[in-house]
Design a protein around this nucleic acid. Structure first.
Lengths: 230, 230
DNA sequence: CAGTGGTCTAGACCACGAT
DNA sequence: TCGTGGTCTAGACCACTGG
């Protein structure tokens, strides 16, 4: 068996024995190197594969940790993030990174909003202190005038409904696997190049009018998507 | 800027200039090493990140290639694979790896089929000669008696309907990002540890009875999922 | 300040693919 | 047979974290 596979199995055994709980820190790379009389390159090969598998994750220059349980998420359902995550035993937190003044300069505005001015809202969401998602929300400035004065760390859907009498009727998501763009990686305290799930979501009202357009970057190991069909 | 980022950008430029078409082969790792007066470790760092991003992919010991366009796939829709892929300009092919005789020994059988005997059908699907998916289909042996005598390289849904008068009413998928298990990696001619999308799908008839249970492993760069909601 | 992960060098051997 | 990618060694320096 290959050496990096041995190291991989060794760590997998650590996890399955229950001697390491979700969130706890793995031995340092140099410790593992000594344990296996190997080199850091090989150790990191094993760690990288376990990270890709989703069982461990790294925080920049802080070390390697055991991945918590995955959040079960329905991408095409209007669910309240706080409620859903609470139900699954997580402590959620939403941080507003920025709410940009209305502008027609985003390429999104041209592609989806007929070139009209839009708000751009950027948020990061955390579970138990771990940043797992960054999202950018675009919506028509004219339709949601004064959005920046609303409390934006909760449900946007609810604000749209309660404050603007806008109801979501249906939506379409496009989901792909890629890596975090560098700026997103920074916000999520991940290394450039970390894998992620990218979700692009367009939401419409009953008049087939686009209400908002979201781009979400989820850590690939933080989420499990549930989709029901037909 | 970091060296591996320079190499990454260099390759990205090659792609965006259009000088490399989907499917064509990249310069060898040692060529890139010479171009940048660097080492193979660093070159492979850049290649690994581009692979994670989904723009290039490796075939075992054959080299690095430009990723073809992604297939747009509705995970929760009963679509005919051949028809859908044809519409998107691909040449599809389905290979039956094995159809195992009815057995109650699979853990799936216990978890989903009340311990009754089930068929296990294993298939690989290709687009333009590239294996992008391996799936395992489990269904009740009693309900689909003689399944192994059917032509299994097409639509199972159609066989169930036409030969067994069983109609799918609805289904549920659970989608996560992980790595190919080693045996699947072999079948898809990928290295152990290649990232993938794992789709677990349960399909039911109108009587809420489980018709079949599928596990699909998609190459992470071969697919873009479309989900419609509410 | 000590230890950690992030990046990088300069080699090596092997198994497999193409020819 | 020769070139390729897959794996591995034995070091190094740096930036940042945590005490």
């Amino acid at each position: 068996m290959l050496l990096y596979q041995k190291i991989r199995n060794y760590i997998q055994d650590l996890l399955s024995q229950g001697s390491m709980q979700p969130g706890s820190k793995l031995p340092s790379e140099r410790d593992l190197q000594d344990t296996f009389n190997s080199t850091r390159i090989t150790v990191r090969e094993a760690l990288a594969r376990l990270e890709a598998e989703g069982v461990i994750y790294s925080q920049k220059r802080r070390g390697w940790f055991v991945t918590p349980q995955k959040l079960r998420w329905h991408p095409a359902r209007k669910v309240n993030f706080n409620r859903l995550t609470n139900e699954q035993g997580f402590a959620p937190k939403t941080e507003v990174i920025s709410i940009a003044p209305p502008s027609a300069m985003y390429s999104i505005a041209n592609d989806y909003f007929n070139g009209d001015a839009v708000y751009q809202l950027t948020r990061v969401r955390k579970l138990d202190g771990r940043a797992i998602l960054m999202e950018q929300i675009y919506c028509l400035a004219a339709r949601f005038n004064g959005l920046e004065k609303q409390p934006l760390n909760g449900s946007i859907t609810e604000i749209m409904s309660a404050q603007y009498q806008v109801e979501i009727s249906h939506e379409q998501c496009v989901i792909s696997v890629t890596v975090l763009p560098d700026d997103v990686a920074l916000k999520l305290e991940k290394n450039s190049g970390a894998p992620c799930l990218k979700v692009k979501r367009a939401r419409y009202d009953v008049h087939e009018q686009l209400v908002d357009y979201n781009i979400e970057y989820w850590l690939h190991d933080a989420i499990e998507m549930v989709v029901e069909g037909v």
